[in-house]
Amino acid sequence: MLLLTDESERGRRLAKQLGVTHSLWRLRSGPLPQEASAPQAVFTDVAFDNEAAVHWLRRTLQALKRNDIPVVCLLRSEDRREEVQAYALGATSVLPADASDEDILKAIDALKRRADIDLAVEPVRARIVQASSSFDHIMTAGRAGDAPCSQTLSDHANGVLAAVRQDGVKAWLHALRSYNDVTYQHCLTVTGLAAAFASRLGFGARDRLRLTRAAALHDIGKARIPLAILDKPGALTPAEWAVMRSHPLIGYDLLASRDGFCAEELAVVRSHHEMLDGSGYPDGLSGREIGDLVRLLTICDIYAALITPRPYKDGMPAADAYDIMVRMGGKLDGDMLAEFRHIRDDLAFDVTG
């Protein structure tokens, strides 16, 4: 395994902690030594606020010229943009720099076991990186209390539509499995499902774009939720749930007074947790008070929440998640859910495998 670091002392400590043979290479110019030119896996431990180090890391990873090498980036901060940058550089997975030895070894083992499967979705990774980068602009605007650029939103939605059309929703969701940011992974999952569902329903180009834009926007209110709640590795307390449940109204208030967002998109942001039987939130809407676009997106949102792994639980297999939604009865639109069964059938893999 090759370890790329800009601090030799940290690198030596990491190599010793892991107790495995490493090729340790300090940050400097020049080609990699012969013994480090064909590693089975690469770990990077580089400060992303160091422009020279990032440039060196990008050049070094490109020089390896093999896209089947697992690359794990250790991140020294919790800045979400750092994770996006890591994936843009070619990371297969990311871990915090203070990850335990056990977590690092588990990451190596998981990457090796998935190597053959991952090759099948490697072409999708570039599209995932592009989509996560454009989605980051959406969430960055939200964190600043502003609305995202409508054109940026459309470009993001069109990119997801094109990727799902070309590669299929199965490959899209499979490639997202290595994405560690829970909120980003969930939103990109929902957007991919919405793109596939719109195509399945035979929507025209305008309606496909509208549903996919709405999917990308639906959780923008979470940009204003504290990370301690958003990323909590366990069940939320009642007080924390109250804060979390405020995200639809926060998102709606961010967008409602801005140009570029249609009434149906705003309704999705505000009402994607409403249920047809009136048991949802924030407004307790029921029946005909809930529009078709909201009903479609709610199905995608719940399904994504069930199949996506969390730090405190595994994701469900596709069929099991769908069965749970069927048992929700009058909370969801039965006709739309019946059509969504075809999306379930397309996902003929265990997302937790």
Rank of each mutant, 00 (worst) to 15 (best):
S8V: 15
E9I: 13
H22E: 04
L27N: 06
G30S: 04
L32R: 11
E35H: 12
A36C: 09
D49L: 07
N50V: 04
A53G: 04
R66I: 00
V72H: 02
C73A: 09
G90F: 01
T92K: 03
T92G: 09
S93H: 01
K106Y: 10
A107V: 02
D109A: 04
R113C: 01
P123Q: 08
A126M: 09
S134V: 05
C149G: 07
A157F: 08
L161F: 10
A163S: 12
V169S: 06
L193H: 03
L193W: 03
A194H: 02
A194C: 08
A195Y: 14
A196T: 11
F197M: 10
F203E: 15
R210H: 09
R213L: 07
D219K: 15
A223G: 03
I229D: 15
K232M: 15
P233F: 12
G234K: 09
L236Y: 10
A239D: 14
A239F: 14
W241H: 15
A242I: 15
A242M: 15
A256Q: 09
G260C: 13
E264C: 13
L266P: 00
L266D: 01
S271Y: 15
G284V: 13
R295L: 03
C300G: 01
A305Y: 00
P309V: 01
R310L: 05
Y312F: 12
K313Q: 07
D314L: 07
P317V: 06
D320I: 03
G330Y: 07
F340I: 09
I343Q: 02
